[in-house]
Design a protein around this nucleic acid. Structure first.
Lengths: 117, 117
DNA sequence: CAGTATCCACTGTGATACTG
DNA sequence: CAGTATCACAGTGGATACTG
């Protein structure tokens, strides 16, 4: 049993899922990777997310200390998002996860050479 | 771009999330670990899941080939769930993920010795 | 450009009751 | 014991309009 921010978790997996679970968070972290991206660039790399969801998820990741938000005070506005050290520490795991999925898909439904990018 | 089961994914992370994303799947896989568990045992280890959700998620994991369902034909019924080799191949990644969450929580909110289990 | 606000529709999740 | 069926609700998603 673990307590974090006054929430009780039965195992650390639950805690982890609260941080990076859900439909978008890990995807956002993954796409940020080592670069800083503007809101619009991030939006473009996640074609199916809505503006509302992207904003909301970024705020939550920021609150968890996994993402930095850097505002350039200019007109038109420019905001860049990047991973904090804590966020970056997650990249290797996400990489492995990604690789696992790719492997899995290939085992189940081997792709022709020509379809592989 | 990846195509799997006629669904198009922009990156393999999306594919992975379709397989093990959502509120319960990775938690179920994690709790199964190396053992075979009966439905009721699994339910007990995931106190907050409803029977409906557990059944539903297990069916989906089974369809993905990550979980085996073994039925003992007897009365009262006994059904055991276990990880397939593909499912087991995910365990090391889940372990790392778990560890990451634990580490994160400890950095943010160091626990007293006495509270650590 | 990078948001916020509002309204509405849809789906996932949950509570409860029932069954072979 | 291991489910299925039904109903209700919250979170998510989409469209649109507006703003510093």
């Amino acid at each position: 049993m673990i307590t974090f921010k006054n929430i009780q978790y039965n195992c650390s997996m639950e805690l982890t899922l609260d941080l990076i679970g859900g439909k978008w968070k890990s995807l956002i972290l993954w796409h940020l990777g080592d670069n800083a991206l503007r809101f619009s660039e991030l939006k473009k790399s996640l074609p199916k997310i809505t503006q509302k969801m992207l904003t909301q998820q970024l705020r939550e990741l920021e609150a968890s200390g996994l993402v930095n938000r850097h505002i350039y005070t200019q007109i038109p506005p420019k905001v860049e998002y990047s991973l904090t050290p804590d966020g970056k520490s997650l990249l290797p795991v996400l990489e492995t996860l990604c690789q696992w999925g790719l492997n899995y898909a290939n085992t189940m439904e081997p792709m022709d050479e020509k379809n592989v990018k």
